[in-house]
Design a protein around this nucleic acid. Structure first.
Lengths: 209, 209
DNA sequence: TCCGCTTACGCCCTTCGTAAACATT
DNA sequence: AATGTTTACGAAGGGCGTAAGCGGA
């Protein structure tokens, strides 16, 4: 039901509400100005205008009123503003949490690699350490037999070799065009590497960053 | 830095994270299945798959791991899941608040209209009441002179007439192709209609719903 | 007339569905 | 083989900028 042209209020279905709309509206409400909000967010006025309009459509209520020169929030506008502050704050918290998780990649990292990987691994490991300075790796380059021995004794967080030994129940991830494998005991076996490195990283991305 | 193909982790800039991505991820995490999440949200598997992938790119961390048949959340995945629950819950709260605000359109509504609007207004008013049952309107249909008198005496929340009287300082909104005007004393003057109907509605949309 | 908000239009990017490929059991 | 996930691609929709329109001090 419409009385004045342009006042179509859509009930329900606040499905296509957008985080960007919330960011813009929060800035608009804080500055009480579309122009300053646009400046703060490095956007143009029309972009802000249209997004606030869409937000009003999504909310099903008018949120701002222009009384002469100044801009006021309606009660619904205040409700939306509170929600925006809460939600954007929660997002910032999540950002922090994710950063902390990534920063928490720390501790000792024991690995041994076959000689043929001697020139492949150190640069990768170096880049990984650059991203995660709290990790203290100990890299042993040795022959295949000793790598298998260390693997069998569970002395490494993981090893890197070409052919996986069939007599061991291990988990292997091929990499570098299947020339090499990252080999480790499968988790449940609580390896040090698992405890120290896995938070925030997928198991397959032990060295990925 | 990439070690395994497909594990590109993008740092920072969680700017284009989407509410839809959160809805999908929340459902995926709850069901531990892309398929069931897609069913619940009336989407296809690929849509869910790609959005979760994008969410992981935005988060800068892998969020889900496929261990054989079952699906697990990484620590980062749990953090994101908590945030999704919080944010979607907050949105539901906002929905409730907006509905309540709209329901709070209540109270007496006094208006008088010129005779020529006799056949126009009642259906509009009826539809408005249907949406806002707590409003108790009193409609008076009379001639132009009495409408002006009531307007001058401030006895109505607003009136509807064709030509606005020039001797009164009033606020007029044309509607119905400028044949009729909604006329009221401008706010700051705290009219009953303003108090009873305006919460949740823009001033220009007094009857709009 | 100036300033600020809105509308119009066009481009680009994103999203989703269909279909096919891939993986795991 | 069957179930479940991912990739490819085309169509539809949304976001934003530029430019023009509009409205109040």
């Amino acid at each position: 039901m419409i009385l004045f042209p342009g006042y179509t209020l859509v009930y329900g279905s606040r499905m296509h509400l957008t985080l960007q709309q919330m960011r813009l509206f929060e800035a608009v409400a804080r500055h009480r100005s579309f122009t300053r909000a646009a400046q703060e967010l490095h956007l143009t006025q029309p972009a802000v205008s249209i997004q606030v309009k869409r937000l009003e459509e999504n909310a099903g209520s008018i949120l701002v009123e222009h009384m002469g020169k100044r801009l006021f929030l309606t009660p619904a506008g205040h409700a939306v503003y509170e929600a925006c502050v809460d939600i954007l704050g929660r997002l910032r918290l999540l950002d922090q949490a994710l950063d902390d998780l990534r920063a928490d990649v720390r501790g000792p990292l024991e690995l041994s690699v076959v000689t043929s990987a001697k020139y492949i691994i150190p640069p990768l490991l170096g880049a990984f350490i650059a991203d995660h300075p709290a990790v203290t790796p100990r890299l042993i380059v040795t022959n295949r037999a000793r790598v298998i021995e260390r693997l069998a004794d569970n002395r490494d967080d993981f090893v890197i070799m070409g052919q996986i030994p069939p007599e061991l129940e291990v988990e292997a991830h091929p990499f570098l065009d299947n020339l090499l494998m990252i080999v480790a005991h499968p988790p449940p076996s609580s390896r040090r590497a698992a405890r120290s490195c896995r938070p925030g990283l997928g198991r397959g991305a032990l060295l990925g960053a």
